[in-house]
């Protein structure tokens, strides 16, 4: 390991993109993609970054992986400055941006890996065995000599992953690694991610899939409009949005007095009302065990068609609460 400190540390990272429109009269516009990001990621862990489209996840990933310069602030990976020490960092980090692009489609998957193995200076004597190893890890060994243009989207995603780990990086940036994968391949990818962490690799993961983040990431951050709106373990984030228990009640309309009564129940921290045609749904976040479904049923006893159920507050609940709160 290159440093005993955090694997990633950022201080007040901002990033703005300038664009110009028009031919004769150029109109300049500035978009603030990141607005002061402070992060710290422990070595050998998986850190998840969640956020809606356009929140700045890919921008932050590219800054940390030396592909983009921040407008201001500082970022350190393995204790080294991503701007001034990019040459030192690049052989030690892997980046998987994924998607349909980013590969040489007219040549085989194996040739793609050979090319990048050479650019990363993998010793020639190890090159072929290393390629075999990573192809095996992503389950592409049977298709490695086929042209990439014949690959499905999922296979391309696997090849991206194989390239990302080919040079055995100390830190791996994964931007939506399971997008486009079928459920089986996605599960295998998550298994691979866990095995990499077991090998000591630090993983920085962005994803849209809440269950994936919940399953893989002991710690995560939620990014919205270029700011980190929350950063902690999933359990603590549940507490942040009002409790780890959620009770949902559905009926044909609730009145304000009923909602006020529910608010007064012990431990109820938040109630969200939603309408689905004639059906209304109340979602209660509950901090303590004192209030359960029975107490809610008692308050709403006047409704003949009432359905009440209790579940654990999911990461998706946390995410939606925080992102919606930020949007307001």
């Amino acid at each position: 390991m290159s440093s005993s400190g955090p694997a990633i540390e950022t201080r007040g990272i901002t990033r703005a993109f300038d664009s110009r429109k028009g031919f004769l009269f150029r109109e300049a516009t500035r978009t603030e993609a990141l607005r002061g990001i402070d992060l710290s990621v422990e070595q050998g862990s998986i850190f998840g970054l969640l956020g809606p489209n356009g929140a700045g996840k890919t921008t932050l990933t590219k800054i940390l992986s030396t592909l983009l310069l921040p407008t201001s602030g500082a970022a350190y990976v393995l204790g080294h400055d991503v701007v001034r020490e990019a040459d030192w960092l690049r052989p030690r980090m892997g980046l998987v941006l994924g998607g349909e692009r980013g590969l040489y489609n007219r040549v085989s998957g194996r040739e793609n890996l050979r090319y990048f193995a050479d650019l990363y200076g993998i010793p020639l004597g190890e090159r072929e065995s290393r390629i075999r190893e990573v192809l095996g890890r992503v389950d592409l060994d049977g298709a490695s000599d086929r042209r990439v243009e014949e690959y499905s989207r999922g296979m391309k995603q696997k090849l991206h992953l194989a390239r990302g780990i080919l040079h055995r990086p100390e830190i791996l940036f994964l931007d939506e690694p399971t997008i486009g994968l079928d459920p089986k391949s996605a599960r295998e990818t998550r298994k691979l991610v866990r095995s990499l962490v077991a090998d000591g690799v630090t993983i920085f993961l962005t994803t849209h899939y809440m269950f994936e983040a919940e399953e893989l990431c002991p710690k995560l951050a939620i990014l919205s409009k270029g700011r980190i709106v929350a950063r902690d373990t999933v359990d603590r984030l549940r507490h942040l949005v009002g409790g780890d228990r959620t009770i949902e009640a559905e009926a044909y309309g609730f009145d304000d007095r009923e909602v006020d009564s529910l608010h007064r129940l012990p431990g109820v921290s938040k109630i969200v009302t939603e309408e689905f045609g004639p059906v209304s749904r109340l979602t209660l976040r509950v901090r303590t065990d004192e209030t359960g479904p029975e107490a809610v049923r008692a308050v709403l006893a006047n409704h003949a068609e009432l359905s009440v159920r209790e579940r654990r507050t999911s990461l998706e609940d946390v995410y939606l609460d925080l992102v919606e709160e930020e949007a307001r």
């Binding site: 992986s65 592909l67 690049r90 052989p91 980046l95 692009r101 590969l103 040489y104 990048f116 650019l119």
Partner: peptide
């Protein structure tokens, strides 16, 4: 066009 400029620039060469 292929999107390979990013990974190539990101490589240590």
């Amino acid at each position: 066009e292929f999107g390979t400029l990013e990974p190539t620039i990101q490589a240590p060469t």
